[in-house]
Amino acid sequence: MVETYCVVTFESTQHSLMFEKLLKDNKLGVKLMPVPRQLSSSCGTAAYVSCDEKDRILELTKINNIPISEFHILEVSKSGSILSKFMKK
């Protein structure tokens, strides 16, 4: 089974905090977290968001001038075995 989730990355920590506030103010789900390993070897801050809201989120960041780096759609195998996760990466 494959699970899809969406992550937004930023150029600075402050941008991620501004993004979090923007989404919360607009009653959209958001959770800050370390950048997923698949995306980067850095340990910066990213935001976990709902994939269904992609268009709305991108529109909001544009209107409010919140700089984001990229909107990523990630697929994670949920087959259970740790090995299969490593293979996927």
């Binding site: 920590t13 991620s16 800050l32 977290m33 370390p34 340990c43 801050t45």
Partner: peptide
């Protein structure tokens, strides 16, 4: 540093 930073800044305990 990342471990304590994320705990205080984004309440994340991954690191």
């Amino acid at each position: 540093a990342g471990g304590f930073r994320d705990l205080m800044l984004i309440k994340d305990t991954h690191f």
